[in-house]
Amino acid sequence: MAAAQAKATKKPRADAQRNQEKIIDVAEELFTERGTDVHMQAVAERAGVGVATVYRVFTSKEVMISVIAARQFDRCLSAVEETARTDGASAALHAFLLRMARVFKGRSAELRALLSELPADQRPSEQGDLLPRLAVLHERWVTEEVLRPGLDLAAFRAVVCGLATAVACGLNVDAAADVFQSGIRAR
């Protein structure tokens, strides 16, 4: 029993950790290129590892999708956290839109496709961290009168989703941030 617990808490070897990161990176690249039609064999071939190694990292395609989707949410959360540390409400709003546009560039459609493949109970929870922090930013910008009056949190979230779609459809990241800011900024 103690040996099993020690094995479960043992840190992976450095090469195993590198393989795991490479496999996750490659899986994400393949999903970006091909959508959800990605097989474990393709991940293994591009990563230069055996299929068994891929299955040690991802026990199933659903786990692979969940890990990649969680990584995307982490990027969104990082953009929100960086924005919270930005001085000046107007500068923070522009920085937020620019950061989010960069996160979504080439990945918005991928994320929607990935999430649609998973049962709801296996999707990473955006509710846990991302939405409450986004609400704090929204409240800051409302209080400091940076956002257009009447732009409630639901509408602001819809704007962020629209930004993701615009960038996924090819709108330049800088242009997207400028266009969306001009649409939601107080006059």
Rank of each mutant, 00 (worst) to 15 (best):
E139K: 15
R140Q: 03
V142K: 11
T143P: 05
T143R: 15
T143H: 12
T143F: 05
E144K: 13
E144V: 07
E145H: 15
V146F: 02
R148Y: 02
R148Q: 09
P149A: 05
G150Y: 00
L151S: 00
D152W: 05
L153F: 08
L153C: 01
A154Q: 14
A155Q: 12
F156Y: 04
R157S: 03
R157H: 04
V159L: 11
V160I: 15
G162K: 08
G162A: 06
L163V: 11
A164N: 10
T165A: 12
V167I: 07
V167D: 02
A168M: 05
G170H: 09
G170D: 06
L171R: 14
L171D: 05
L171N: 09
V173S: 05
D174C: 10
D174K: 15
A175S: 11
A176R: 14
A176E: 08
A176G: 09
A176F: 08
A177E: 09
A177K: 12
D178K: 15
F180E: 04
F180P: 03
F180G: 01
Q181G: 03
S182K: 15
S182H: 14
G183A: 08
G183Y: 04
G183V: 10
I184E: 02
I184Q: 05
R185V: 10
R185W: 03
R187I: 10
